[in-house]
């Protein structure tokens, strides 16, 4: 998907901070400019923006695509030019920004399950699945839980295969997912040890991991974003999805209006549109908010709760503790 986006690195010089922008896009011809920064690939959110602009002819959306770390740094450094909306899948960073007082409350009152302090609201959801190559791991079709996966990988019949997953040291999403796995499953370290006993090669991004599994370079990719997998299924007969029945994590995409937003009113309208039925229908089905309630294969979707407790993941000492253990288990080449 990343290839679809023109990955031009534009270095825009701002007052005190240089933002590393992955892409800059405009939607609409209007004169009221709404500037927002987000981690989503533009192609994912473009239909929603188009729908919003179609209703609000006077608006032009200015979308800056950035990494979640860049967004965090940009907000903390004091944004200039003023950003009206911040949208990111790094829910831990988002929560910390709101906790530290960089957001302002929304005009509308959102459901407590979907928002925190009414300053941070969930606009989409990103379920996480495990994928495997059917030819490399033919016995995996029957696996239902992580425990079973560990057993299968441990069994003598299974030959040593290459396995991939997010590298938490490189990817914020990977780190978040590993921490949440640890909270959900006390045996997560054991599972990691099993993966490591094969050939674990951590990776940076979902797209690369999917490519590796399709090509057979990796037999299994643990924790990849489902929405990146689904479009590839058609042309990759060997690619299969493993939805665990013990739990399936999902990362909420959240948005907030920064305190110093230029046009908080317009930002509020865009968020309201985003969570409306019309806005949601323009997203790919797998990332719509109602996926949590939908009846699908596998166990219950457990979206990562939007809670200020997430800030402890980001604590440096805590990170260090985690990586001490991680490096003990995983031999990063």
């Amino acid at each position: 998907m990343r290839s679809l986006v023109c990955c031009v690195l534009i270095l825009l010089s701002f007052q005190s901070y240089s933002l590393e922008i992955e892409g800059e896009f405009f939607v609409g011809q209007g004169t009221d400019e709404l500037t927002l920064i987000g981690t989503s690939d533009f192609s994912r959110v473009q239909p929603v923006f188009a729908g919003f602009v179609a209703v609000n002819q006077s608006v032009r959306i200015h979308y800056l695509q950035m990494s979640s770390r860049e967004i965090d740094a940009a907000v903390r450094s004091g944004l200039s030019p003023n950003i009206d909306l911040v949208m990111s899948s790094a829910v831990d960073l988002q929560v910390r920004l709101v906790n530290d007082g960089y957001a302002q409350p929304f005009d509308a009152r959102f459901d407590q399950q979907m928002s925190w302090r009414n300053e941070l609201v969930q606009v989409a959801i990103e379920p996480v699945v495990t994928i495997f190559n059917r030819s490399s791991l033919p016995h995996l079709g029957a696996v239902k839980t992580r425990r079973e996966l560990a057993l299968v990988l441990d069994s003598k019949e299974e030959k040593r295969v290459s396995i991939t997953m997010y590298n938490p040291a490189v990817s914020g999403v990977g780190y978040l997912l590993s921490r949440q796995d640890l909270i959900q499953d006390e045996h997560f370290w054991q599972l990691l040890e099993k993966l490591e006993r094969h050939n674990l090669k951590p990776n940076c991004c979902s797209g690369d991991m999917i490519d590796q599994v399709i090509s057979g370079q990796s037999a299994l990719a643990y924790n990849v974003l489902e929405s990146y997998v689904l479009p590839r299924l058609e042309n990759a007969p060997l690619l299969d999805i493993l939805r665990f029945e013990d739990y399936q994590l999902a990362i909420p995409r959240t948005a907030f209006v920064p305190k110093q937003a230029n046009d908080s009113d317009l930002a509020n309208r865009l968020v309201n549109y985003f969570v409306s039925n019309d806005g949601q229908s323009r997203l790919v089905p797998s990332v719509r908010l109602d996926i949590v309630q939908s009846n699908r294969r596998g166990g219950p979707i457990k979206p990562i709760r939007i809670t200020p407790a997430l800030i402890v993941h980001l604590d440096e000492t805590n990170r260090r503790r985690f990586f001490n253990r991680w490096n003990d288990v995983v031999n990063v080449p």
Partner: peptide
């Protein structure tokens, strides 16, 4: 830093949470 304990705190009220750990006057985290 216990995630669950902080989560319990967060459940009690939609308030901002801060923490700090000091050794003497030196901040650890």
């Amino acid at each position: 830093l216990p995630y669950q304990a902080f989560e319990v705190l967060a459940y009690s009220a939609p308030e901002r949470i801060y923490y700090a750990v000091f050794l003497g006057s030196e901040i650890l985290s």
